[in-house]
Design a protein around this nucleic acid. Structure first.
Length: 887
RNA sequence: UGGCUCGUAGCUCAGCUGGUUAGAGCGCUACCUUGACAUGGUAGAGGUCGCAGAUUCGAAUUCUGUCGAGCCAACCA
């Protein structure tokens, strides 16, 4: 902080400065060298350290823990840089910034990657092999080679499998950290965590215990969304629609007591699971059937025919079969009509054995049992056609089907036992909580609201996977060895974290595990969102460190992408509400996506994903950050190396302007000259704009305005206009004074620009800062973001003299360009015509203009019909050597 | 079908609460080595602001309708 003397009475005096000889400064900005050197400096100096003890206000950021599977792509760089820009601004704004980095390393993406990487699979029954340490196989062999050579996968025990998950994620995290450091994230690496580490597991299980005590959680055996590849339950929020080809199949049903009708279905393989038939109650074609019973073909099952408003008479044949379960509506009909359950699809997506009432049915079913859905469908069509129940060929259609977002086959609905968090009954409260958070941009709240309003299923949090946080529950076994699900036993808080598969519930011994009268541990793990929804609490050490929690929670800002508003933002708000009736954060800043140059979303399957490292190497981190920082909050941005090029140009310009400013010496003195004062006045206003943009969570606006100001007012205008005053040694007192005014204004200007640009271009600004400004603070990143305070004690300037000087400079340059002469050529006489006000404004800065444009004699002509800030060249005379070259 | 965004120069985008002649950068053209910078500088060409109405003294900006693009959700038998 600057210590300012009695400002009210005296203007601010600057100390004498010794210019740095140009030869002593680097010739050019070598990004990779600067980046490496400054990264080390920041680490050594602990520049970005969060302080647990100091009393400055905290600014806590709920950093998204990236999924650690594979490599970062340019979208990560884009959004994380935007967060870092805010973090750096807040740090310079005097906040004690809490900016952690977590790794989301548990869950399916990791499991899948580990399976491929080591060519292994988790097999619950496999015995544990202590010390097993397999080499990575994918680095030596491709997938195709593995298949060709028929190298079998190794089946590992759960414990061995998890060990290998840890092994790989640790390596991946190192790679990620390298890229994050390169891009210049001002993360405090002491706050690093992983969603699978011990503290995270403890806090996730604490969350479970709390919700369990509050009875906000229940366990039920019911139809749930199921992915047959991963063989786990999934949540509504993890579904996505995909358009795939399908076909309507017309199947004839008989009516009990005579008659028949034809239903249309896209899933004939579920005929065996048909438990009802429904049609619209007003449909003239079928309404007389309502109340009767139908007999399903081939399987001869007697099912009720009922009316339902949900049936669309336009669709298919207007009458349809209800199965357990083809889709979500089937579940609804099944519940409302209290239909029986005929579950035929198994957890692996194959048709399970099922006992039918008739021999014929059992014989038919025998042909499809054990087949997967696709095979069964094909066979069923053949059988139906042969039997005559299906007279027409399937009619192909294109339809949207629900998929688990990470899965390859449509989800099925299976009756399984799962744990749920009650959310459907809290929709209104969730919307109200959401409205109390400041969304940036504001309209993103609509997405949250929209999703919450449409939520129809409670949050299924149990997953039948391995690499995750265990659900901390044991179940007693009765004398027959039957699991007593309704008597679930939870651990004490002190026991956490627990793995119910190896740890014991209180009062039991290991010998009782799996024995009648004993107990059994829950083998399911949490949905990864169950842990991820606690990232603010993971950072604040909720329940483990109350003082820390109080200081950090609710956090100030959650940065995240818009496609996970329905999951991450939604669940995080839910958790904070359920646990503490609190908001998780005050602000949420939504970043857009990076689209490929054709404005298509980047995705691995399309093969249009851009990896960042080549661009970091080619343009430098600051240039890539410039591209990220320029984007408007929440708006999708096309990947464009052209913008990075411009960023690099800006970084170099700052570097070169710094060289110019620092090369000038000056005596001690005050800023007195009208041009200097006018420039600083304008700069002061620019600082206020920048602050406003940052406070609005629109840093891109600050960058755009600052850049424009820097380029047009500073380097193109002001720097040129003061050159004659700063060049060389001055002899007279007046000249020395005028020089000092310029040099000190230049230095204050440069210092201000470095601070304004520091959040965006941390490397180039820091590099220049360290040449001569370390007296104020060691790092520009710990300096105060500029405000009017930086200009205290400097007399107010008149901006109009600056505008007049620039206008005159432009008119003269234009004249020289039109005459096709060098800007450096001397003008012996020039007559400029302008509005009298403009001429008046030019007077105090006329000598600066003449110096910069090499004018020996300047005459002005008044013309009040002209608009202000416009000069017209009436007459110009160049020196004789110039005239020679004229056309 | 509903909700939300977007549509401005060849390209990427600014344009806040309506107010002179609609801006910037890239690209393009011409010129200039000037003592921080040729990874530079000076200038030039280029737009009836998707379309149609309405409000207003005045609309790129507000309202209505419409067309197009994207996203989210509903429907998906």
């Amino acid at each position: 902080m600057l210590v300012l003397r009695d400002m009210a009475t005296s203007s601010r005096s600057f100390e004498k400065v010794q210019g740095l000889p140009l030869e002593s400064l680097p010739k050019s900005l070598e990004f990779s060298e600067v980046e490496t050197r400054l990264q080390q400096a920041w680490e050594q100096e602990k520049t970005y350290q969060y302080s647990e003890t100091d009393t400055r206000p905290v600014y806590a950021i709920d950093t998204p823990p990236p999924t650690v599977s594979g490599s970062l792509h340019v979208g990560h760089i884009f959004s994380y840089t935007q967060t870092d820009i805010i973090a750096r601004y807040q740090r310079m704004n005097g906040k004690n910034v809490f900016y952690p980095m977590g790794w989301d390393d548990n869950g399916l993406p990791t499991e899948r990657r580990v399976q491929n990487f080591f060519h292994i699979r988790c097999e619950a029954s496999a015995p544990y092999e202590a010390g097993l340490d397999l080499p990575p196989i994918l680095t030596t062999m491709t997938d195709k080679e593995l298949q060709e050579k028929r190298i079998p996968q190794r089946n590992l025990s759960r414990k061995n499998f998890i060990e290998h998950c840890h092994k790989l994620t640790v390596e991946d995290e190192k790679q990620f950290k390298k890229v994050w450091s390169h891009i210049g994230l001002s993360v405090d690496w002491k706050l690093e965590y992983a969603t699978i580490d011990e503290r995270s597991r403890t806090i996730a299980q604490l969350s479970f215990l709390d919700l369990h005590e509050k009875k906000e959680m229940y366990q039920i055996e019911a139809p749930t969304l199921w992915d047959t590849d991963f063989q786990t339950a999934v949540a509504q929020a993890e579904l996505e629609d995909r358009e795939i080809p399908g076909a309507f199949h017309d199947i004839e049903f008989q009516v009990e007591g005579g008659g028949s009708f034809t239903i249309a279905t896209t899933r004939p393989e579920l005929l065996a699971a048909c438990v009802g038939v429904t049609t619209h109650p007003t449909d003239e074609r079928y309404k007389n059937l309502i109340g009767k019973f139908a007999i399903s073909p081939l399987f001869g099952v007697r099912v009720p025919i009922f009316g339902s408003e949900m049936v669309n008479p336009e669709k298919g044949t207007g009458i349809l079969m209800v199965c357990t379960f083809g889709d979500q509506t089937d579940v609804q009909w099944w519940r409302e009509q209290k239909l029986p359950l005929r579950q035929i699809i198994g957890r692996d997506g194959r048709l399970m054995p099922f006992q039918f009432e008739t021999t014929q049915a059992n014989e038919t079913y025998a042909k499809i049992v054990g087949k997967n859905v696709k095979q069964a469908q094909k066979l069923m069509v053949e059988i139906l056609q042969a039997s005559g129940a299906m007279k027409t060929a399937p009619k192909p259609i294109q339809h949207a089907v629900k998929f688990y977002e990470k899965g390859d086959r449509p989800v099925e609905i299976l009756t399984t036992r799962q744990w749920f968090v009650k959310l459907v009954d809290k929709k209104e409260k969730m919307i109200e909580y959401g409205s109390r958070i400041k969304w940036h941009p504001e309209y993103m709240e609509a997405r949250y609201k929209n999703w919450t309003e449409n939520l129809s299923i409670d949050w299924c949090i149990s997953r039948q996977r391995f690499f995750g946080v265990s659900i901390p529950v044991w179940y007693p076994l009765d004398d027959q060895g039957i699991i007593q699900y309704d008597r679930a036993m939870v651990p004490t808080r002190k026991q956490l974290p627990v793995d119910p598969m190896s740890d014991l519930p209180e009062g039991y011994t290991e010998a009782q595990r799996g024995k009648p009268g004993g107990f059994i541990g829950e083998s399911d793990v949490f949905d990864t969102w169950f842990t991820s929804s606690l990232t603010p609490q993971l950072g604040s050490h909720w329940e483990l460190n109350p003082a820390r929690h109080k200081k950090l929670f609710p956090m100030d800002m959650r940065p995240q992408a818009h496609e996970i508003i329905r999951t991450w933002a939604f669940y995080t708000i839910a958790k904070a509400m359920l646990h503490e009736q609190s908001l998780p954060w005050k602000h949420i800043m939504i970043s857009g996506w990076v689209l490929d140059p054709d404005r298509k979303k980047m995705s691995k399957s399309k093969g249009n994903v851009v990896t960042p490292s080549q661009y970091l190497d080619e343009f430098g981190a600051d240039s890539v950050r410039y591209w990220s920082g320029l984007a408007r909050t929440g708006v999708d941005t096309a990947f464009d190396p052209g913008i990075m090029k411009i960023g690099r140009r800006l970084a170099m310009k700052i570097f070169n302007a710094g060289k110019f400013v620092f090369s000038n010496s000056a005596d001690d003195g005050v800023v007195t000259e009208p041009l200097d004062l006018a420039f600083l006045e304008k700069l002061k206003a620019q600082c206020a704009h920048a602050v406003q943009s940052f406070e609005n969570y629109e840093p891109g606006q600050a960058l755009m305005e600052t850049e424009k100001f820097f380029w047009s007012h500073f380097t193109d205008s002001y720097l040129e206009l003061v050159k004659t005053r700063t060049w060389g040694e001055k002899t007279s007192d007046a000249e020395k004074k005028a020089k000092a005014s310029a040099v000190h204004a230049l230095r204050l200007g440069l210092k201000t620009f470095l601070k304004l640009f520091a959040p965006f271009l941390p490397y180039s600004t820091e590099e220049v800062w360290r040449w001569a400004f370390t007296g104020e603070s060691k790092s520009v990143h710990l300096a105060r973001f500029p405000t009017a305070q930086d200009f205290e004690g400097i007399p107010a300037g008149d901006p109009s003299v600056f505008d007049a000087a620039v206008a005159a400079q432009t008119a003269i340059n234009q004249q020289k360009t039109l005459s096709k002469v060098s800007i450096a050529r001397a003008i012996t006489l020039i007559k400029l015509k302008a509005h009298p006000d403009t001429i008046k404004a030019l007077t105090p800065v006329q000598s600066d203009v003449c110096g910069a444009t090499k004018i020996e004699k300047l005459e002005t002509v008044s013309d009040s019909t002209l608009s202000t800030n416009l000069f017209l060249v009436e007459h110009v005379e160049y020196g004789p050597e110039v005239l020679k070259n004229m056309p």
